[in-house]
Amino acid sequence: MLSIIYGVLFYLATFLLVFGLAMKIWLYAKTPAPLKIPTMPAPLTKTGVGFRLFREVAFFESLFKSNKWIWLFGYIFHVALLLVLLRHFRYFQTDVWWWIKIIQPFGIYAGFAMLLALGALFLRRIILQRIRYISSPSDYLMLLLLLGIAGSGLAIKFVSNTDIIAVKSFMLGLLRFQIGDLPTHPALLVHLGLVIILMIIFPISKLLHGVGVFFSPTRNQPDDSRNKRHLAAWAKELEEDEKNG
């Protein structure tokens, strides 16, 4: 019974995540930017903009300029998250890629790094008056959710092991649209449950920053307004209406 609930929830969460994200991306893409507003100095070319976005996503360039502590904890968390995610690939592959095998041990260190960085971000949010002022319950809950995922994950590994082979066959089964048996291991159920929640809220929460940054006009526009006329569709209509009286 539990296996079925989790299986169904996984399908639902995946659907909401993919569909929700696609919706948002489509919405952002079709919403016009009426004016050229890159934060200057901006790259003069599209290639340059590519590099700017890459630096933002790969190194958090602006955040680094802004605040070294947030950068440090934020960066550790995101890199660790990436490693941990990659480590989890092995649960979805019958033949695990060699490089996924190589990063397995690093994925574990990353788990601890994640916990640490999230803890630091959480403390910061509580202790620093300015950050506390701008925080809503959801901001704390989001960190707690991620802490819960990291903590339960590490608990499975280090506190009480679960039948990892069975988990893997459950996941592989889901990929083939078969719901197998999921071990009823408390930490595992918590872990997966929280991941499901995270997937569901991703497209409707601030987690959207992951895709939003690519649609930020101050970052994704080149500095070429004197050479190229930029005109939003609705502004064009406005001009045409005027011409036709």
Partner: peptide, 22 residues
């Protein structure tokens, strides 16, 4: 929110990191 992407995206994606607060 329909006419200006900056407006929509910026209202959606702030993570309240606090980097801008000072």
């Amino acid at each position: 929110a329909k006419k200006n992407r900056a407006f929509k995206v910026y209202l959606d994606i702030c993570v309240k990191c606090g980097a801008c607060t000072d």
